[in-house]
């Protein structure tokens, strides 16, 4: 895959507050990349720098190998779907979608044909003459996507595009966006604070916090192999335990040593261990290393969320098997369920 966009050490400060503290990121062709992180971590700012609405203080922004951080937005081969759509209220659906082509003085018949194709792509055929303010949130969303894609950008930027939609429509649009991305075959850079959305749609997830990139990886990578406590706790639920890496493939925590599959740490290095609640099994206390008492049981629809109080901490366990409160139980997990991470300083 070819690199399309490269951010090298990008920083940005807004009135004394450093919002981006050195962003390094490579974005490839045809990739669905998601910037994921809590509100205020700098996702929108990163996107605006790529679109050209904000200029970075330091660092390089390369597009196809060429430095573009000083290029105005109207000269970039990038289009944006704005968070609140920003459809022009004085233009109808057709005119909104045709805006970019009309700026380029495209021939009328070509414009008409392309707008119709776009409307078909986003499932709004026949809406040409509609007033944009009369459309529902989901429909406005589709018009915004069509208006951006008609310019055939190399990259489409989407800033929390589903934020304003209700849960059911969100799911539908997630699926549809992914479909559209495959169909047009361009890079999507998608911003969200919703980890489930990020995991289900992306090829690459970029986890951000506090102006830094915490981890870049496939959805499975960032879920199964979180690199630090922030990623582990932000993506999915997890038990995070302080421990010591005795040597490669052997970690100790809560008074016991456990085999694991992680390597590359120093011997006796302080580490943090992640155990996903669904990876822990409840077994009988005999022969189990970790034991404890069931503290609470909450039914969550598909599974029970069971808290087990052991000597040093409470473990969270997700299981489909019921287990009554107050019972003594053992906890069991395999070497591959243990994820060892660098300790955050």
């Amino acid at each position: 895959m070819n690199t399309l966009i490269e951010l090298n050490n990008i920083t940005k400060t807004f009135d004394d507050q450093q919002v981006l503290k050195g962003i390094n990121l490579k974005i490839y062709e045809n990739e669905f990349l998601t910037l994921l992180g809590p509100s205020g971590c700098g996702k929108t700012t990163t996107l605006r720098i790529i679109a050209g609405f904000d200029e970075p203080d330091c660092g390089e922004l390369l597009f196809g190998g060429i430095e573009i951080s000083k290029l105005p937005p109207y000269k970039r081969e990038v289009n944006t779907v704005f968070q609140k759509y920003a459809l022009f209220p004085h233009l109808d659906v057709f005119e909104n979608i045709a805006f970019g082509l009309n700026i380029k003085k495209t021939e009328k018949s070509v414009v008409k044909q392309k707008v119709e194709r776009m409307l078909e792509l986003v499932g709004l055929s026949g809406f040409e003459k509609r007033d944009v303010t009369s459309l529902s949130g989901g429909q406005q969303q589709r018009v915004a996507i069509a208006r951006a894609l008609i310019n055939e950008p190399k990259v489409l930027l989407l800033d929390e595009p589903l934020g304003a939609l209700d849960a059911k429509l969100r799911k539908e649009m997630q699926f549809e966006l992914k479909k559209i991305q495959k169909e047009v075959g361009i890079t999507f850079i998608y911003v969200t604070h919703d980890q489930e959305e990020a995991l289900s749609m992306s090829d690459t997830v970029v986890v951000m916090n506090d102006g830094y990139i915490q981890q870049i990886g496939t959805p499975t990578d960032v879920y199964n192999e979180p690199e630090n406590r922030f990623v582990a706790s932000f993506i999915g639920e997890s038990n995070i335990i302080e421990g010591v890496m005795i040597r490669d493939c052997l970690v100790s925590f809560d008074d016991f040593e456990f085999e694991c599959v992680d390597k590359g740490f120093k011997d006796n290095e302080d580490v943090e261990v992640v155990l996903r609640p669904e990876d822990i099994d409840i077994v009988s206390p005999e022969g189990a290393k970790l034991t404890g008492t069931v503290e609470s049981v909450v039914f969550k629809g598909v599974h029970y969320e069971i808290m087990v109080k052991s000597k040093y901490r409470s473990y969270m366990i997700h299981t489909t098997d019921f287990c009554e409160e107050g019972r003594r139980v053992g906890l069991s997990f395999g070497p591959e369920d243990i994820h060892v991470m660098w300790k955050m300083v």
Partner: peptide
């Protein structure tokens, strides 16, 4: 006027002059 209309216009390839006549002026009518 919402600044995002102006940004959307730039984003779609309109330079500042085009943006003024096609978006800003129209919205200020």
């Amino acid at each position: 006027m919402d600044k995002s209309f102006i940004e959307a216009s730039y984003d779609l390839g309109a330079n500042p002059v085009q943006t003024f006549f096609k978006v800003v002026f129209k919205l200020s009518i």
